[in-house]
Design a protein around this nucleic acid. Sequence first.
DNA 1: CGTTTATGGATACTGATACTATCCATCGGA
DNA 2: TCCGATGGATAGTATCAGTATCCATAAACG
Lengths: 208, 208
Amino acid sequence: MRIGELSRATGIPVPTIKYYLREGLLPAGELSSPNQAAYGEAHVRRLRLVRALVDLAQVPVAQVKEIVASLDADDVPLHDQIGRAHRALIPARKQTASAEAREVATAEVRELLQRRGWQVEADGPALATLIETVATFHTLGQQNLVGFLDAYAAAVEQFTELEVEAVTAHPTRDQVAESVVIGTILGETVISSLRLLAQESISARRWS
Amino acid sequence: MRIGELSRATGIPVPTIKYYLREGLLPAGELSSPNQAAYGEAHVRRLRLVRALVDLAQVPVAQVKEIVASLDADDVPLHDQIGRAHRALIPARKQTASAEAREVATAEVRELLQRRGWQVEADGPALATLIETVATFHTLGQQNLVGFLDAYAAAVEQFTELEVEAVTAHPTRDQVAESVVIGTILGETVISSLRLLAQESISARRWS
DNA sequence: CGTTTATGGATACTGATACTATCCATCGGA
DNA sequence: TCCGATGGATAGTATCAGTATCCATAAACG
């Protein structure tokens, strides 16, 4: 397959594919001569994944690069590879809350993890984001939202158990890593959409 | 309060505050003379909200403008105002999936809503995003993820009931609308962080 | 075999977003 | 009275995500 066919197969313009190649979102094709490369089904799959992340999940290109790099790093133990993919999925966020608010939030989150018996890295980005957000609840005068943490955590626990199970059931390791990425990122847009729909449905029922 | 004090109170540079004023994220201060305006506590609150949305939740400035406009539109029935706020919270996404995939996804989502008895607008953006995402599961060869829809919906139902209840319990209508915005947007980052932490904790337990 | 079209690679340009910087006439406080 | 801050306008900057152009070469067609 040459680049034009790759473009037709995916609906992505040739210049954009060239851009993705430059940025390392897509591995180079097999070169047969200095200006002739062959692409395969793997490239089509990869491009579809990139587009889903960029267009649907609105993941920045730089972050997509990290994500696909983790998918291609299959020369380490599977567990390490999944860890790397998982880390690449978490966006960096600016710290915004005051130090005092963050301290209060840190304590609240720590207690939550204790209550639920969750064992997580003490300095991971997901934990930092959670703490920052809870701290922001305080600075915005929405302390009552802190009370929802347990309800959210309990709900999340339910399906996460199933997700982890499903992921480990995949036959090949490429599929395992890829399904971690897709399941986590697109799963988030699913959950978010469902939440908005549930809010709409429930509040409509309450007002009629 | 003059703009310098507003800047000191929030930690936001004066030029940025001027930019937010220009963009309509912040209402103008009370003008006492052509180059002298007074800002109040409401401005401090609003700036904190804007910063939380922009920095923490990474909402684009143009969308924040819609959101705050909905908060200020308190001359319509509360129910309409909340509807407008709710709509402003849903980002627009490009359509990416093929027509066939979208058709399959539409049927699957429709059945889901039927099963759960959710009554929602047939052409809302949240529904469109959900359909688009399910369609993408198909084009990425991750049909198995469609099986998670019920688990996600069931989990989401649990806490949404509580959320709607809590929101309606607020004493004043500004607080109602504002807590819809904060609860929905920051609630999403909380849920997302908790999900990642749960994944980390559960998969660590499974591999040790 | 010659001509048109496509290709890989490099470099330059574009439009959108989110600020920053500068300017200026005016105002308020020491 | 005079110096720094203010409101408002306009211009400049950095980053991001592509697009566009150019070129020498290679493939496809008549």
